[in-house]
Design a protein around this nucleic acid. Structure first.
Length: 309
DNA sequence: CGTGACCCTGCTCA
DNA sequence: ATGAGCAGGGTCA
């Protein structure tokens, strides 16, 4: 049986299981490329919670298989989250044809962008500042375990947790948030929760603002600068003109595209905004993943001057 | 524009 | 093997 969920054909395998035919979706690189922090490898696949839905994703010869704990009639929420309705081959073709881009494409084919719920994405990236990905994951696990609502569990498994609401994090208070290892980010998350709760920040309304204006709204929040705002705009709102520049990307762009010179921050910013075409945000994810996973020589520690014997 | 402080912890190297 | 010491997908003052 096939059902039409928006613009992507789904094959319903059972009331709780569906197949999404695609041969160009790599779960591992997508779910561990540092755009989302709540997916965990489980057996041959990946487990996570999308909004209120616990999901297990795995590969099959025919495409992506998704399984949930309760019968699902309409899978459009997952299609949206996984951006399955993107024209992937057109996106890839739009990338600039240069050596770094070719290398990045060759090393992680099937890397995809996600479209995450804005609130969860915002909190995730507020937590990300000066932290390593494993640490961010740990923070978000603690937050969800302690302050999220349990979602219907898979049989014989502990319940997954929905991401905590702003109200739940306000209840947690700064002390509760610090206990989740947020450190100096705790008051930042609290302020964001309060802004959403008292409606001085309307995350839904950002959808309709030009990227620059949406960025201005987000950076008004304490603890949210241009980098974190760009992450939220790209990973939750799909803004392709949001190109987060973090230390990895700065080192990566400099090494890959300006090997001789030492480009200024301003130069790199301009390059990032002008070089990568209509799907720049997507291209960014390829460069980032490539630099992080395949260029250990560009790690900060590797860049320290070698100690002489 | 540059610089340090901010919480905390995993990683690295002695 | 064990423990300092350091730096980590930033932001603010």
């Amino acid at each position: 049986m096939t059902s039409d969920n928006g613009s992507f054909p789904v094959r319903i395998l059972s009331p709780t299981k569906a197949l999404f035919p695609t041969h160009s979706f790599d779960l591992s690189s997508t779910l561990s490329s540092g755009q989302s922090f709540r997916w965990r490898k489980q057996g041959k696949g990946w487990s996570g919670v999308v909004g209120p839905h616990p999901v297990h994703l795995s590969d099959s010869p025919e495409g992506l298989v998704a399984e949930t704990a309760v019968p699902i009639g309409d899978w459009s929420w997952l299609i949206r989250y996984l951006r399955l309705d993107d024209d992937y081959s057109a996106i890839i073709r739009s990338f600039p044809d240069d050596e770094p881009m070719r290398s990045a494409l060759a090393t992680c084919p099937g890397l995809r962008l996600l479209r995450q719920p804005a609130w969860e994405c915002l909190v995730g990236f507020i937590c990300s500042s000066t932290k390593q990905i494993v640490q961010i994951e740990q923070c978000l696990d603690l937050l969800s375990q302690r302050y999220g609502q349990p979602v219907t569990p898979f049989p014989h498994r502990p319940p997954g947790m929905a991401f905590p609401t702003p109200a739940a994090l306000i209840d947690a208070g700064e002390v509760g948030l610090r206990a989740c290892k947020l450190g100096f980010r705790a008051p930042y998350v609290l302020a964001a929760a309060q802004a959403v709760a008292d409606q001085s920040l309307d995350l839904t309304a950002l959808e309709f603002l030009p990227t620059a204006e949406a960025q201005a709204v987000l950076t008004r929040l304490p603890g949210v600068g241009p980098k974190i705002a760009d992450c939220v705009l790209l990973f939750a709102y799909g803004r392709q003109d949001a190109f987060p520049l973090d230390v990895w990307m700065l080192r990566g762009l400099a090494a890959l595209y300006f090997p001789r010179r030492k480009p200024s921050l301003k130069r790199l910013r301009h390059f990032a905004d002008s070089h990568f075409g209509p799907w720049a945000g997507y291209a960014q994810q390829y460069i980032f993943h490539y630099v992080r996973c395949h260029r250990p020589d560009l790690r900060a520690r590797a860049l320290r001057p070698p100690i002489s014997q």
